[in-house]
Design a protein around this nucleic acid. Structure first.
Length: 854
RNA sequence: GCGGGCGUGAUGGAAUGGUAGACAUAUCAGACUUAAAAUCUGAAGGCCGAAUGGCCGUGUGGGUUCGAGUCCCACCGCCCGCACCA
């Protein structure tokens, strides 16, 4: 009998699968199709445990579907554009393209040993001109249908490096390289008109039954539908009224000022006229563009001196303030503030000494608001003082409705539905992305490039010299010749757009491209018709909003432009969001008190403490942190694979933690997984060699086998991988200890191999072969549980007295309620507490429990 | 600030409203061994008790129920996202 040698087994079976081409997907009518997709990776250069977990989960699904008679599509590609490639070029020279393709080659070779059931013939990278050229074609079609447009938008601007910064490149309000305070600056940029689809993207969420409820909720909140009142405040100076939008019009009598965004047209006009306003607005533009920075930053205000009339009382004048927390992108960019019933408004009014007027009180409380705003609940009654719409007691909802009615009848306002969702800005002032295929012509303006000129390829160098990425700014912008072209419309000399597309564009349609990756149009409708939609999509929760929402929008836009069939408005039938793989961080400090992070392999663990191997210094252990390159707590799966094999890595990332939750990688966990697989191999080998004739326990073993089939199948189908694995452990223990005859054990062991094969495909093939299984385990029909074998003939019922477990009885599985009750009441423990009296009530749940109430 | 989630032994976790802690890790004991490793067998939530057994126990406090880890309300703690990271 040989030992379990993962390295040998794994190479052997990967070759066998390749030779048999069992993972190549092709259209066929004899089987149902199944498209399983994991979110494709960014080619950072090394796979990490998060990848292993993600792709293993997808592989379990894919292999299970293959074994249950499906025609499976399970592709892989690379989300290959993006900043890290440029950062690498900045940090250590080289070219983003070379860096990216070499990373892809590395990662592919790291991924293949995992034994994933991937159809590699469909592989592509989004930085392949064949891919991004089709993306440019999509863009032109979108442009033609009005799905893309240009407008001004705010970006992070580094005034020292004179460059646009991504949010990620802003640290504490400063540019990451220059350290300069970041400013907000406006640029003309391209936008997808996703907001036109707000209602559709919102209401269709209800159809996504197989998406996690939390993701649908997050998207719902992100789209942010609200009903409110829109109306104008008349200006005393007779200028154009200021239009505001509010979701709480019922608090109108508590208004203390009208606030406008620093980007509001009135603010801009004042900025041009008054140096004081200009200085204030400039102050407001300091800091990053993230919503978080704006919402948590210090609230600043400036009284413009403009006065407006309250719509319900022309004698009541309200001041107009510019306030830095008001977003130009939402509503009308102007609000009225009601400090008594909104905490942010209250803080602002206290700071600038503006009046606070109560308009609502709780039913049992009439203390005026001090420093804590009273937000009238929407569904509970409150007292409405200062009311004007005929109600004195109302829920927030009733008050809002009454106000909207009142304003509409009086003619000074109208009920309006708005969405928080903003249009998707896709322009990036960076080199390593898909060029936006438009041309700027002095005479014709912005002109779409002709389709026959696609792909518009990125230039590799600058007039024969390598592009210098150490210079800030977009290399396309300063390229000596790349911009030069002729106008597609009039033929005159013109200039290319130098902005590239957001990498989210690349990932918003790759799933459709996988159905026909070599087509010379973005998709092939026949292929898309057959393979779409993705039956199961798997990826990180961090994509719950942006990537998934953009993809949902793209599917609709691709329908409008004829690139996807009718049925594909929702591209992902089922979604699973897996948790992260975490790992402890080992941290020390350098002489300057700055944190230094150590790789796990640089650290020695002793008595629950960590010591840096080189220096012996003790490191602080920060447990269960997100794996992050900057924290050096990334575990390299290659080390695991080379010491234990891919099956061990796969088994480990699936066991212990539920797939949707984070799992902490531990060395002992990997060790344990390896030991267990060795045990399974040993047990199976012994069975292959054995010839026991005693078959007295066959039925008991086969019963356990059918229970295992039932539980593991259910676990795999419902993403309960950890529970399925626990069952497999238990079944292995049962099998190892079983005294059943050789034939029964052989059958049980073969079934064990099959049940394990989605998780540990190589080991399963080996055992399958050892036990003379027919063909490949990967394609052998999935075992079926025999229902009659799932329930034991007798069941153990716990007896509770007043809900506390006091005894248990063993009864035939189909015994009637009355008889069970009789036996339960006869129990010694029950008799003891009853003391001859009759129980108040007896609850018998057949097959589960008996509860005696006294 | 806004939005979302999570909280169960020493640890990861299991549990259609029905015996809390399956399965695994770490620990301890035993077998095998000259010894160690590997392997096998067993113990184990806490407290009290020699034991039959009893009391307590799923972040905290309430509630619904014959019965709550699970449902409801409030609170505490931790984690994630916030539109130019992928």
């Amino acid at each position: 009998m040989s030992r379990y040698s993962a390295a040998e087994i794994e190479t052997k079976w990967q070759e066998a699968w390749n030779t048999a081409e069992i993972f190549q997907a092709g259209r066929s009518k004899d089987k149902p199709k199944y498209y399983v997709l994991e979110m494709f990776p960014y080619p950072s250069g090394r796979i990490h445990m998060g990848h292993v977990r993600n792709y293993t989960m997808g592989d379990v699904v894919a292999r299970f579907k293959l074994a249950t008679g499906h025609n499976v599509l399970h592709p892989m590609g690379w989300d290959a554009f993006g900043m890290p490639a440029e950062n690498a070029a900045m940090a250590s020279g080289g070219h983003p393209k070379d860096w990216t393709y070499s990373n892809i080659a590395d990662m592919r070779s790291q991924m293949k040993p995992l034994g994933l059931s991937i159809d590699w013939s469909r592989e592509f990278a989004t930085c392949d001109p064949e891919y991004y050229g089709q993306q440019q074609a999509l863009f032109l079609d979108f442009l033609e249908k009005g799905l893309v447009y240009r407008k001004n938008a705010v970006v992070n601007w580094d005034p020292v490096d004179m460059t646009v910064l991504a949010n990620e490149q802003v640290e504490n309000g400063r540019g990451w390289r220059s350290g300069a305070l970041v400013e907000r600056r406006e640029l003309t940029q391209w936008f997808f008109k996703i907001s036109d689809h707000s209602e559709e993207l919102l209401s269709a969420l209800d159809t996504l039954e197989n998406w996690p409820a939390k993701v649908r909720l997050m998207q719902e909140n992100w789209i942010g539908k609200s009903r409110g009142l829109q109306f104008g405040f008349e200006r005393i100076d007779g200028a154009e009224p200021i239009t505001v939008y509010t979701t709480r019009p019922d608090t109108l009598m508590g208004a203390s000022f009208v606030g406008i965004s620093p980007d509001h047209p009135i603010a801009k006009q004042l900025e041009a006229e008054s140096p004081e306003v200009a200085a204030f607005v400039a102050e407001c533009r300091k800091g990053g563009t993230t919503e978080e920075a704006i919402e948590t930053g210090e609230k600043l205000g400036y009284d413009t001196g403009i006065r407006v009339k309250h719509p319900l009382n022309p004698d009541w004048e309200l001041p107009v303030w510019i306030a830095n927390f008001i977003l130009m992108d939402y509503g009308t960019g102007a609000i009225f503030a009601c400090p008594a019933h909104d905490q942010r408004d209250l803080d602002f009014c206290r700071k600038y000494d503006l009046p606070v007027v109560d308009t609502f009180f709780a039913l049992d409380n009439d203390t005026p608001v001090a420093n804590e705003a009273f937000v009238p609940p929407k569904t509970e009654k409150v007292r409405w003082v200062n009311h004007f719409a005929g109600l004195t007691e109302a829920t927030g909802e009733e008050a809002i409705d009454a106000t909207v009615d009142f304003a509409e009848k009086a003619g000074w306002g109208e009920g309006v539905t708005k969405y928080r969702l903003r249009d998707w800005g896709l322009s990036r002032q960076r080199y390593w992305g898909c060029p936006i295929p438009v041309v700027h012509c002095e005479k014709c303006g912005v002109v779409p490039e002709k389709k026959e000129n696609l792909p518009i390829q990125l230039p590799y160098d600058e007039g024969g010299k390598p592009i210098d990425f150490s210079v800030p700014g977009n290399p396309l912008d300063r390229h000596p010749t790349w911009r030069d072209c002729s106008c597609p419309s009039c033929g005159a000399p013109a200039q290319r757009e130098t902005d590239t597309m957001d990498t989210f564009v690349d990932s918003s349609w790759y799933f459709a491209r996988f159905t026909a990756p070599r087509a010379d149009t973005p998709t092939d409708l026949a292929e898309a018709e057959y393979w779409m939609n993705v039956d199961q999509y798997i990826g990180g929760i961090e994509h719950a909003i942006l990537h998934l929402l953009y993809s949902r929008f793209f599917a609709r836009a691709m329908q409008i432009t004829g690139h996807l069939p009718e049925k594909s408005s929702e591209p992902f039938n089922a979604l699973f969001t897996q948790g992260m793989v975490t790992h402890a961080i080992y941290q020390t400090e350098n002489a300057k008190g700055r944190p230094v992070y150590h790789y796990p392999e640089q650290v020695e663990l002793r008595d629950g403490k960590a010591f840096v191997k080189d220096t012996g210094e003790e490191a602080k252990i920060i447990p269960s942190a997100k794996m992050s390159k900057s924290k050096n707590n990334v575990v390299d799966p290659l080390n695991i694979i080379s010491s234990y094999g891919a099956d061990t890595a796969r088994w480990f990332v699936l066991s212990d933690s539920p797939p949707e939750r984070d799992v902490e990688w531990t060395a002992s966990g990997a060790e344990a997984a390896f030991k267990h697989l060795g045990r399974v191999y040993r047990v199976a080998s012994e069975i292959a060699d054995s010839d026991t004739a005693d078959n007295s326990e066959d039925k008991a073993l086969l019963r356990e086998m059918h229970k295992a089939i039932h539980d593991v199948t259910g676990g795999v189908e419902s993403f309960g991988f950890n529970a399925a694995i626990a069952k497999l452990y238990a079944f292995t223990n049962t099998l190892a200890k079983s005294k059943a005859g050789a034939a029964a054990k052989r059958e049980a062991a073969k079934t064990l191999a099959q049940l394990m094969s989605p998780m540990t495909p190589h080991l399963s093939e080996e055992i399958w072969q050892l036990l003379d299984g027919e063909g490949l385990a990967a394609t052998a029909p999935w075992p079926k549980a025999d229902e009659s074998m799932l329930v034991d003939d007798t069941v153990t019922l716990p007896i509770q007295i007043n809900g506390k477990r006091r005894a248990e009885i063993s009864v035939p599985k189909d015994m009637g309620k009355a008889e069970v009750e009789k036996i339960a009441l006869a129990e010694h423990a029950v008799q003891k507490v009853l003391e001859g009296a009759a129980p108040k009530k007896v609850i018998v749940v057949p097959g589960r429990i008996v509860n005696v109430v006294i």
